[in-house]
Amino acid sequence: MLYIFCPTCQRDCDETELSCGGQAHLIRRDHASSDKDFYKYLYERKNDKGIIFERWRHVYGCGKWFHTARCTITNQVFGSYSAKEVQPPKSILATIRRYRVDFKGWGK
């Protein structure tokens, strides 16, 4: 039962209040894109066994979306940040590096 910090409410939220929206920082492909790029945007997901950046909505709460960095093996959460960010904040990347020396970076 995850307990994740909502950056809008500034408090931890129980999993029952949240809904997960999958991979964060996807770049939407519109009609001008190639079929291949569109497929990648729509279906191909980073599905790492390890650290992922993902979207959550505090659906039974403030209703706001936010992003987290989480480890899919241990469920450790490295921090939450606004869904408007186009990349993870440096502080969160630093936290991840503190725990995972082999972390390659968020886009890899």
């Binding site: 039962m1 995850l2 997960c20 066994k49 992922i52 241990t74 469920n75």
Partner: peptide, 13 residues
């Protein structure tokens, strides 16, 4: 569960 997970354990929800 609604989120990616490799831990073979889930939530009580």
């Amino acid at each position: 569960d609604g989120y990616n997970n490799y831990s073979q354990r889930g939530s009580f929800l």
